[in-house]
Amino acid sequence: MIRDATPADVPVIHAMVRELAEYEKALHEARASEEQLREALFGERPAAYAHIAETEDGEVAGFALWFLNFSTWRGVHGIYLEDLYVRPARRGGGYGKALLASLARICVERGYERLEWAVLDWNEPSIDFYRALGAQPQDEWTVYRLTDGALAKLGGE
Results as ranks from 00 to 15, higher is better:
Tyr80Leu: 11
Phe67Ile: 00
Phe63Tyr: 15
Arg90Val: 00
Ala21Glu: 04
Glu109Asp: 15
Glu39Gly: 09
Ala53Arg: 02
His51Ser: 01
Ala98Leu: 01
Leu27Tyr: 02
Ala32Ile: 11
Glu24Ser: 09
Trp66Arg: 00
Ser71Asn: 03
Glu39His: 09
Glu82Ser: 12
Gly94Asn: 06
Glu56Arg: 11
Phe42His: 04
Tyr112Cys: 05
Gly94Gln: 06
Arg105Glu: 15
Val86Lys: 07
Ala50Thr: 05
Arg110Phe: 05
Tyr95Arg: 04
Gly43Trp: 06
Gln36Cys: 05
Ala50Trp: 01
Leu84Arg: 06
Arg110Trp: 09
Leu37Cys: 04
Trp73Met: 11
Ala40Gln: 11
Ala98Gln: 05
Arg74Ile: 01
Ala26Ile: 04
Leu99Ile: 08
Ala89Ile: 03
Gly96Arg: 08
Glu56Gly: 13
Arg90Asn: 12
Gly78His: 01
Arg91Asn: 11
Trp117Glu: 10
Glu22Ser: 14
Glu82Ile: 05
Arg110Ala: 10
Glu109Met: 09
Tyr49Leu: 05
Glu109Trp: 04
Leu84Ala: 11
Glu44Phe: 03
His51Leu: 12
Glu44Lys: 13
Lys97Ser: 13
Ala61Asp: 07
Val108Gly: 07
Leu68Gly: 03
Gly96Ala: 11
Trp73Ala: 12
Glu19Ser: 08
Glu29Arg: 14
Ala30Ile: 00
Ala40Thr: 07
Asp83Leu: 05
Ala26Thr: 09
Ser102Leu: 00
Arg110Asp: 10
Glu56Cys: 04
Arg38Asp: 11
Glu113Leu: 14
Ala53Gly: 07
Arg110Thr: 09
Tyr23Thr: 06
Ser71Pro: 05
Glu82Gly: 07
Leu68Thr: 01
Ser102Ala: 13
Val108Arg: 15
Phe67Asp: 03
Ile106Ser: 04
Glu54Ser: 12
Leu84Trp: 02
Gly96Phe: 10
Ala48Glu: 10
Tyr49Val: 00
Leu81Glu: 15
Arg31Val: 14
Ser102Thr: 10
Glu44Leu: 08
Ala32Lys: 04
Glu116Trp: 07
Val76Ala: 08
Glu44Met: 03
Gly94Cys: 06
Ser102Ile: 00
Ala53Cys: 08
His28Ser: 13
Gly75Ser: 06
Arg105Thr: 15
Glu54Thr: 12
Glu59Ala: 15
Lys25Ser: 13
Phe67Ala: 08
Leu20Ser: 02
Trp117Phe: 14
Ala26Arg: 14
Ala53Trp: 00
Ala40Asn: 02
Ser102His: 13
Val108Phe: 13
Lys97Gly: 15
Glu35Val: 00
Ile79Tyr: 04
Glu24Val: 10
Tyr112Thr: 04
Ser102Arg: 15
Trp117Thr: 09
Arg31His: 13
Ala50Met: 03
Glu35Met: 07
Gly111Glu: 12
Glu22Gln: 15
Trp117His: 13
Trp66Tyr: 15
Trp73Ile: 08
Gln36Tyr: 09
Ala32Phe: 00
Val76Pro: 00
Arg45Ser: 15
Thr72Val: 12
Asn69Glu: 08
Phe42Val: 07
His28Glu: 15
Ile79Val: 13
Asn69Ala: 03
Ala53Val: 01
Glu56Pro: 04
Val76Asn: 13
Ile79Glu: 01
Pro88His: 07
Val86Ala: 08
Thr72Gln: 06
Gly62Trp: 01
Glu19Pro: 05
Ala21Trp: 02
Ala21His: 03
Leu27Trp: 00
Gly94Pro: 02
Asp57Trp: 02
Cys107Trp: 07
Leu100Trp: 07
Val86Ser: 08
Trp117Ala: 12
Arg114Tyr: 01
Leu27Arg: 15
